[in-house]
Design a binder for these strands. Sequence first.
DNA 1: GTCTCCAATCACCGAACGGTAACCGGAGCG
DNA 2: CGCTCCGGTTACCGTTCGGTGATTGGAGAC
Lengths: 206, 206
Amino acid sequence: MADATTRATPRLSRSARRIQLMSAAKAAFVTQGYHAAAMDDIADRAGVSKPVLYQHFPSKLELYLALLNESADEMVRLVRAALAATTDNHERVDNAVAAYFSFVADNGQAYRLIFESDLRGQLDVERIVERSTDDCISAITDTITTDTGVDVEQARLLASGMVGLSQVSARYWLQQSPHVSRAEAIELLSTLMWRGISWFPRQEPV
Amino acid sequence: MADATTRATPRLSRSARRIQLMSAAKAAFVTQGYHAAAMDDIADRAGVSKPVLYQHFPSKLELYLALLNESADEMVRLVRAALAATTDNHERVDNAVAAYFSFVADNGQAYRLIFESDLRGQLDVERIVERSTDDCISAITDTITTDTGVDVEQARLLASGMVGLSQVSARYWLQQSPHVSRAEAIELLSTLMWRGISWFPRQEPV
DNA sequence: GTCTCCAATCACCGAACGGTAACCGGAGCG
DNA sequence: CGCTCCGGTTACCGTTCGGTGATTGGAGAC
């Protein structure tokens, strides 16, 4: 059994080839962005030539959408799981921040497809990105509205702020804070967030 | 004096034409993104033909960079002014959040050039975007470190979170919260932020 | 052995788009 | 009157890149 991941044409089965192509495409899109990544590049990365790519994906856009959907789903899954893992809201905040850090740091930079997409004006793309962010906001909003007296639309705004805080700080940490450990960073930011949000409930804070 | 802004070829002076071209280009880049906006489009929007564009800007990239720089400077200016306008940190938080809302809502969508740029891999662009965000973070960090006992790198992380909160929530508000007034939104989010950050000082909070 | 899939290749097309060379025409001045 | 700027235009080039038609070749069924 030889190395079949990046070597030249060991004649893979259709499904295996598809997975490998998606992995190669992901690497290309993540490092170069949608426009700079040419289909030839992606095929080359997979050690294969272009028409093979087109036997698995009908167009560059479809290929990108497949990857984008995958990543968006993963992000939403992580956030939902973080909130569902406990009923203690303090822990929920911790977990949710940790979820964003995990998504940003542990998924081969897939976050770039969502947060730094260089495809604009493409309705499908915008819809997926917006939908995934909205799903995260909705999940957080549910918790806020059930545990506080805040009106739904205001709660969504608060949730969007929390999502933004997590997103941006996680990326900032990843790229600019080499001396702060992941745990420290999560602790710091979830503290900031918890102290902010815990005052809103009619229930007792802190 | 006839309408000279979008009408056909009233033979403008060099400087007037340049301003008009930048305005047309801004509109094009903002609505279509860098890649989708063709130089022909931009020229058309200005009611002028392509070579005129190239008499004022050496390349598409240079044109884009000029606009990007302008917007980035404006954002940093707004945030700096917000923080400098008072020495009361509670007010500073209010003002800073309001500054982001103002930048997002009052500048002809110029924020899209920074927060939704579809030019990746271009070093110049990344540098400008990163620099402008860093300048905002630095401004906030200064306040945090002088008024709290938090270590600088940790303070920068907190600041990045606050920047993210403002950025994302301001954009969310603009697009998704038609029933919440701007003042309400700012009030809500700056409250969230202030309650979070005001616990960090050695000085008394609230 | 040979027939037949089907993965994979080579070579190509056409459109879009950044950028440029050559030309035009009206307003002011001598 | 006519000369000369200079803001303008038309028409074009070359490259890049998404996408495809015709072809090859090795592995398994009989």
